[in-house]
Nucleic acid binder design. Structure first.
Lengths: 202, 202
DNA sequence: TGTGCTTGACTAAGCGCTTGTTCAGCCACA
DNA sequence: TGTGGCTGAACAAGCGCTTAGTCAAGCACA
């Protein structure tokens, strides 16, 4: 039963254009370095159009941040549920985590570096999601250690290192560089295996 | 009989107070999220005092950024000149790099995440310094590979990973956490050895 | 030693402009 | 004709920065 698309598809399209323009602007100039006029102009509208779809500039940031964090958490969780042994799962998690941070480096930059601009209540919610992502990564490492497959002396340090590897990709990755997201991810999966001191395999 | 000793003792002291206040504010709220009034108030002065010592708000950022980058480059270069084999030198570079990013995480955050706010000519100068740091880290890895001590299949990927490990510390490190800068650095030196596939040693 | 001039750090006030946001009204479509 | 996305114009607040001026300390000369 199709319902809504009877009306002209215009409103949603406008909404998406504003959203995309905000992602682009926040990523390159930062939240405070971006004006509502910047966003509106990039979407080809007047500044007031922004308030038809969002309550405030901060709410746009919050929506971008929340969607990004939920996507990241989903990626990590589903990769962790991959069939195979603990090394396979580690590889899958790192591969997907890195691929996402390279492919969506623009929004991933906002996700990881614009937390301070969130309103307190939004920030708290986002921190919860971030904590869940941390927990997943620590779990991946602990699983391998418990199974006797990983030999790293400090699992928590290894988990922090793996997280950093992926997150920092959002900072430095540029389209058209030496590595495609997939190639980089595959190389980083190799690095991850060495970080946790697992047998090379594959 | 001095009426009220309102006058500052030494100009340099005032200058340093403004500088320190700017570092603190830029690190927590970002360059665009910080006002000249914020900085002045934190230093206990009027907004105009800022312009006695600096040409503009951006110039303060530039000075913080430049000093931070020069310090980082110096740290990496002198650690690389350490006596010992290529593994010792890799350990020294990573140890010092990480120690700095943890200990000076406040200014390191500005160094690594506020580049977009720099004026074009300043940004260009800073990019040159960053490139030199990249070159050093790639050299450290290549030296070990050339000596046959490192077995990583992709040296450039390994160098990127080591850089990310250190830089990202500035993002997540908090004082009073589980690891002191020195402990974390020592653990990360271990991780680095595994990343480049060198014999464990030490 | 006292006097007048110079220097330079610092402030109170405020300038011109930009910011995020609002709102009455327009217009295309139901 | 009613509805709702969208705009032009405007708002108060706040921005980076400038200005005119105060005051303490240093200097040269008597």
């Amino acid at each position: 039963m199709t319902t809504t698309p009877r009306r002209a598809a215009r409103p949603e399209e406008t909404r998406d254009r504003l959203y995309a323009a905000a992602v682009e602007a926040f990523a390159t100039k930062g939240f405070h370095g971006t004006t509502t006029r910047d966003i509106a102009a990039a979407a080809g509208m007047s500044p007031a159009a922004l308030y038809v779809h969002h309550r405030s500039k901060e709410e746009i940031l919050y929506r971008i941040s929340r969607r990004g964090h939920e996507t990241t958490l989903g990626i990590v969780r589903s990769a962790r549920a991959t069939p195979g042994d603990q090394v396979d799962r580690l590889r899958a998690v790192v591969r997907e985590f890195v691929t996402y941070h390279a492919r969506a480096h623009t929004s991933a930059r906002i996700v990881n570096y614009e937390l301070a601009a969130l309103a307190p209540e939004h920030r708290e919610e986002i921190e919860t999601l971030r904590h869940a992502i941390d927990v997943e990564m620590q779990g991946v490492v602990r699983d391998g250690v418990d199974a006797g497959l990983f030999t790293c002396p400090e699992p928590r340090v290894a988990a922090a290192a793996l997280l950093s590897l992926g997150v920092d990709v959002a900072r430095w990755y540029r389209d058209g560089g030496a590595w495609s997201p997939e190639t980089l991810a595959e190389h980083y999966a190799d690095v991850a295996v060495r970080v946790v001191g697992a047998p090379a395999g594959r």
